[in-house]
């Protein structure tokens, strides 16, 4: 039975969570121009989900973002990063040599731009997935945070 005296917390947090997630995407895709990048964006996305879990409970958060999804996301992110390196290898360059990705002439920056974008996306997936997996591993062992614990 849930007593709802956390109503102010819930009302304030609910509009905040999408803004936090949106900010994470800004940090991710604006990382070429301003401070930030995959690592920070991944942590911010994880924080948005953790905030949801702290306020609405672990189980609703686990139904929205299942633990199986977070741990696959971590693996996919790492594979995406390493995959860009293998792609460069297949195109005849060195491992993670982005200039080789499209075999463009000197002075072309497409390979660097897409290489950095994909690599940062890999970091985002790996970090967000890992952080959420760690949080679930800790938080999943206590079913509910009791009020007297705060």
């Amino acid at each position: 039975m849930r007593t709802d005296h956390h109503i102010i917390l819930r009302v304030v947090a609910k509009p905040l969570i999408p803004i936090i997630a949106l900010f994470a995407l800004y940090v991710q895709f604006h990382g070429d121009y301003s401070p930030g990048g995959g690592f920070q964006a991944g942590v911010i996305i994880a924080v948005a989900v953790i905030l949801y879990a702290l306020i609405f409970g672990i189980s609703p958060a686990m139904r929205a973002v299942p633990p199986a999804f977070t741990r696959s996301l971590a693996a996919i992110g790492f594979l995406l990063y390493a995959g860009v390196g293998v792609w460069a290898l297949l195109m005849g360059g060195n491992f993670l040599d982005y200039d080789a990705l499209f075999n463009e002439a000197d002075g072309g920056h497409h390979g660097q731009h897409y290489g950095i974008l994909l690599v940062e996306l890999g970091v985002l997936f790996a970090v967000a997935g890992s952080m959420l997996s760690i949080f679930y591993a800790f938080a999943g062992r206590v079913t509910e945070i009791k009020d007297e614990d705060w």
């Binding site: 672990i58 189980s59 686990m62 139904r63 741990r71 890992s130 997996s133 760690i134 591993a137 999943g140």
Partner: peptide, 18 residues
């Protein structure tokens, strides 16, 4: 990634509460 893997191996997936 391996830190997350180590925590999962030690503590479990956290699906018990779910």
């Amino acid at each position: 990634f391996s830190a997350a893997l180590a925590v999962i191996l030690l503590l479990g997936f956290g699906e018990r509460s779910l």
